[in-house]
Nucleic acid binder design. Structure first.
Lengths: 225, 225, 225, 225
DNA sequence: CATGAATGAGGCTTCATTCAT
DNA sequence: GATGAATGAAGCCTCATTCAT
């Protein structure tokens, strides 16, 4: 199966880009270095000029690929979530027990991301940091409803829906499967953030992981023993 | 007791402002209208120039009160959280049963905010919307550690700590009281956001409220019947 | 004679100020701290706001004393030059030999300034640094002719004239006494600046002093043995 | 030889500009008109907005070429000094007698600058006025040591060094060749300034020139007959 | 007299974007 | 298709100053 995935290209919502960055060297460099740069200076300070500078290219060239920096963020986050979804699919395809399956999903969602050699120019580890620090900025905007309607968040929604179904599979009586799923994903990002910047606001740290916290939380909610 | 609170002034971290906006008419107008304006156009588009325009005052006058718009957000969010803390203190002071007390706290944190006549120039309802849409932007920055060290988030941390203690009072065996508290506060904001913009990602809406979801979640986690 | 000078007040051109800063505590603090502040941050960055801050007073109070920061510089430099003139008068009054007298003048003009206990709130040493770093900015302006006509530079001109006369007294045949005098004063400031910032452009430094350089230069020019 | 110099381009320190103004029409217009504008209104009042206005271009376009107005001054002054150095090289290359050579150098440094048809868009005459009125502002700053280390004054230093060597060639016993060289260059600018604005402080004017004054001064210092 | 509050104007700079090559 | 040049608009902020107390 790993073999099948070699040189795999994840399909991101094609509205996020003007020209698919995967189709050229420059495009790949734009994606690769935008991840690095956003990590370095934060999304607010990130500009096409600085990115162009970093990849020794003119800012106008980047406009060939992305309309604006917000779309870059949408692209990167979509890429990340589709990649997470892949992890879930691959790693749970052979698990038939719903409880074990959910267990695996929780582990994937809450654990720290490591780099994945299948997608060479993208650092999933850095991308995970961007998700933690910047993801909410992609939807906490005045344009969220329009963009949602245009499908910019469809991958993320599909992911939550998949988790929701896994929850229902475990306990179809549970009243809040969607909320539990969205709370898991968003909450996990937040706990990672807290453990780095506000250690007193979380129990997650060296000894405890978000995986344990959310496993316990969800198992109790679903009343699985 | 309500009587005592009349004309009460909530003490916000004094580092957030250059000059206390509560000490002058202009200051109060700045606070009042910044809430309205941020709601209208979002924090990204919010500028001192536009605010000055709205209050028929010059942009430079606002700089007498706040260093920059980020500090305005820190001020407003601090104000909100200290106000929430007040609600908790007032409404739980006479409750001795830990379980009922936590119940009340969950209700306060998760319910929709209504305006409070005690602080006339501030619309808590609008402020709550700002918290939902913009709060995370106040700490998802590159300067978060410096600002945290300088005490800009102390009120929020005190609030989480208070909830954490209420959780421990209910079940001192529970392993993740801090994470549960922070997940409650942040998660609740997120569920409110989802119910408005991504209804498929949450069960909260017309029939179900975040209060119910989090009550169930926490009660099961703490194994209270 | 020193006794006579106690509590002496140097008369600076009264056009430089709105209200004589020597007549009040605040005025003296303004003068004292403007010297410190200009030294600290340079004249360009110096503003009444920052000065007001330093002396815990409002910027508007400073306007009672000085029209603008340029006038402060004119005041300070005038003060410095009248103080230098005093040094010359006092230290040469009893010297009858023209050559020895000129010698003394050169020494006073070119040597490093030490603090003078007679004027307690003014640090002549710091003031000397201001003269070296900022004096030329007081006349290299578009308004120089108007201000000159209004007498803002009269003290400086009187000083140069005094030196010129001392030169003539030594050698009345010398063709360029005024240029030699102005070159001495301005050049000496420049050599001090160079020795601190551009040591390769001057011989003045640890071993050689501007005094030696200009003594040699002038003595040769005047053909005094 | 003059033929060789046609269309010559003087190499200025490339740190002074972001993009070499000699490489485009706009760049040349920026240089040309900044000289005119600084002369008209003085360096303090000179802004990129006003310059943009003068050349019917936007302020932001000028930022493509220069970081800020201070860098423009550094560029212009560097250009001037490298041009002066050229004059010295060209006009003294065939003079073997050290004394005559120094004589020529003094004449070039101290005389009034005339326009040089080799560099069509730059008015050396106006530039000379800028040097007289504004040059010292380029180094009398708090950043002088950093900028010096970064090489912004290397051309000027090379010029002084060249003069210093010419002085030593005349009299290798003379103790202050660097100071004499720097005094010549800076002093000459100052005498020109005085003759225009403070005629009583200089002998230079209609009858006497700075050339005569400094020739006499230096010849006596070096004891050349 | 001293001060605090308020402000208009403008400086400096960057951004996002378009145009021409 | 990629790039370099150019730009208008706007952001952010400070200055110098006035006004009212």
């Amino acid at each position: 199966m790993q073999e099948l995935l070699k040189n795999l290209q994840l399909k991101v919502n094609d509205k996020t880009y003007v020209k698919d960055p995967e189709t050229s060297e420059l495009g790949k460099r734009i994606v690769e270095h935008s991840i690095v740069l956003i990590n370095e200076i934060g999304f607010e300070a990130f500009t096409f000029k600085k990115l162009g500078n970093k990849i020794s290219s003119n800012e106008s060239s980047i406009y060939r690929y992305f309309e604006n920096k917000h779309k870059v963020l949408l692209y990167l986050t979509s890429w990340y979530w589709v990649w997470v979804e892949y992890q879930i699919v691959i790693q749970t395809v052979s698990i038939s027990d719903p409880s074990k399956k959910l267990n695996k999903i929780i582990a994937i969602i809450t654990s720290k991301t490591e780099n994945d050699s299948n997608f060479s120019h993208i650092s999933e580890k850095l991308l995970n940091r961007i998700i933690i620090n910047e993801y909410s900025k992609s939807f906490l905007t005045k344009e969220v409803d329009i963009e949602n309607k245009e499908g910019y968040f469809s991958i993320y929604k599909r992911l939550i829906s998949r988790i929701e179904k896994a929850i229902i599979a475990v306990n179809k009586e549970y009243a809040y499967p969607a909320s539990l799923a969205s709370n898991l994903v968003e909450g996990s990002l937040h706990q990672h953030f807290l453990s780095e910047h506000f250690p007193t606001l979380t129990d997650c740290g060296n000894a405890v992981t978000p995986t344990e916290f959310y496993s316990d939380l969800i198992y109790n909610a679903l009343k699985i023993k």
